[in-house]
């Protein structure tokens, strides 16, 4: 088996390319913009300062954000619950049509009823734009597991939407 040599990524380019997705994830894991800002800045400064080497830098950066959030909430682990709604621009949503706004709000509420593992995968895929392979690496789960969690999560959301009569 050949093991590819790890390379030194251009972390600034990764920040620029994945900024929106990283912000969404940081907001979801911290629940507030102050901590999210601090975490993202600290993570990327550290990655550059230490010239961290990685073959999968995008997934690595997301994992570093996750670990930094765990550090912040270590004293109160039960608060570290992914908040899907923290990624929503509520002003823009309120400006949308009432039906679109209601449907979006309801689906984000339903996300809270999913198990954490499924919700995290769905957030990383739909709000941060990661591939399932990248999510697997970021969360240290096999890709097959992540794929199944994504599929089950969407199916469960569909069931919940039907039960609560949310028009999809």
């Amino acid at each position: 088996m050949t093991i590819a040599a790890a390379s030194r990524p251009d972390w600034r380019a990764i920040w620029r390319q994945h900024r929106d997705g990283l912000i969404a994830y940081a907001l979801a894991v911290t629940g507030n913009s102050h901590d999210a800002e601090d975490i993202l800045q600290a993570v990327f400064v550290r990655l550059i300062e230490r010239a961290v080497v990685s073959d999968q830098p995008v997934a690595y950066a997301f994992r570093a954000v996750r670990n930094a959030a765990v550090d912040i909430h270590r004293a109160s682990e039960r608060d570290r619950r992914l908040l899907a709604r923290a990624t929503l621009d509520t002003d823009a949503l309120n400006a949308a049509s009432a039906s679109d706004s209601d449907r979006t709000n309801r689906i984000f509420e339903l996300l809270d009823h999913l198990p954490d593992a499924q919700r995290e995968v769905i957030l990383l895929r739909t709000r941060s734009g990661l591939t399932l392979a990248q999510i697997g690496t970021a969360l240290d789960r096999p890709e097959g597991t992540v794929t199944a969690q994504y599929s089950r999560g969407l199916s469960r959301l569909r069931e919940l939407a039907a039960e609560t009569r949310v028009t999809t």
């Binding site: 972390w11 600034r12 920040w15 900024r19 929106d20 912000i23 969404a24 907001l27 913009s33 999210a36 800002e37 993202l40 800045q41 990327f44 400064v45 550059i48 923290a86 990624t87 929503l88 621009d89 509520t90 823009a92 949503l93 949308a96 449907r103 979006t104 689906i107 984000f108 996300l111 769905i122 739909t126 709000r127 969407l154 199916s155 959301l157 569909r158 939407a161 999809t168």
Partner: peptide, 28 residues
Amino acid sequence: RTNIEQVLMNAPHRSFESSALDRIDAAI
């Protein structure tokens, strides 16, 4: 399922204030 995915993907994204983004960019 596809519709739910689309709703989640297309819902407006919250971002940071532009001044905060500038600060982070400067630090990086």
